[in-house]
Design a protein around this nucleic acid. Structure first.
Length: 261
DNA sequence: ATGGTCGGGTTCCGA
């Protein structure tokens, strides 16, 4: 069995105890982190090694930053999107046996039409060829992270209120659809077609208590691996803790042994 | 009711 998780921690410095407790409770094979908000040098690799987790890190001071924790050593780690020099550290990938994990922190986009929104759409343009390449070259591909896109109205607590806004706009949803159309499946939606399941809630206006959220954190798998999906869930428990991240973990389990090449 | 709350770093930006 392979268990893969993703969690935008919104500062690993603040959330490290939450992450450690969660690792101990759930023992995933792979945990992808986004918004660690620290440099690679500052990453507490030793603390995670003590728990039995290796790390690959693409860090940055203050903003962004991604990492992957793994129970087996990573191979061929790669930071960023090839041939796209971006000072914002949003992408890291590595191989774990037959599975390549690509960890994304997609730009937020700020507001539809803004400079940051155009950067987000351009960033997706740069991402697509990389994903096509990985699907061609790698045996299995899992793409996880904070996609900053709610793929459909079912992923939005109040679609009318959110209509046309950033995270749900047609252009962003078209980019998500394009990802799927490369030959991937949305693991959560494969197994649960019910509304009301979200991975992010605004800190403001008691959004979590009122379950006013969005499902913007995702686990995508190549179609063949998707056939081996046995479970996928959103763990809302860490969002109930003191000083929580505004995101909560998403977890998927596949019937595959990553120790076999 | 058109705000609100975080984190990081400074007197605001990004989410």
């Amino acid at each position: 069995m392979l268990t893969v998780a993703t969690w935008n921690v919104n500062s690993l410095r603040v959330r490290q105890a939450h992450v450690v407790a969660w690792l101990q409770n759930h023992q995933p094979d792979l945990l992808a982190l986004q918004e660690i908000k620290m440099t690679s040098e500052q990453f507490p690799a030793d603390d995670f090694l003590e728990l039995g987790y290796h790390a690959v890190v693409s860090g940055q001071k203050t903003y962004n930053g991604v990492a992957i924790l793994s129970r087996i050593p990573p191979a061929s780690p790669q930071c960023g999107i090839p041939d796209y020099s971006d000072p914002q550290q949003r992408v890291i990938a590595a191989d774990y046996g037959p599975v390549t994990l690509l960890n994304l922190y997609v730009p937020n986009g700020s507001e539809v039409g803004s400079e940051k929104y155009l950067y987000k759409l351009d960033w997706f343009d740069r991402l697509h060829p990389y994903i096509r390449q990985l699907l061609k070259e790698k045996q299995h591909l899992v793409i996880v992270g904070d996609f900053n896109v709610a793929p459909a109205d079912i992923d939005v607590h109040d679609p009318e209120e959110w209509a046309g806004k950033v995270l749900v706009s047609d252009a962003e949803r078209a980019e998500f659809r394009k990802l799927i159309d490369h030959g991937l499946v949305d693991c959560y939606r494969m197994l649960d077609s019910n509304p009301g399941a979200y991975s992010w809630w605004d800190y403001r206006a008691a959004a979590f208590r009122r379950n006013r959220g969005l499902r913007i954190d995702h686990i995508l798998a190549d179609k063949a691996l998707g056939q081996q999906l046995v479970a996928c869930s959103i763990d809302t428990e860490p969002r109930t803790l003191e000083r929580p991240s505004d995101h909560t973990p998403v977890v998927a389990s596949f019937d595959i042994d990553i120790r076999q090449p």
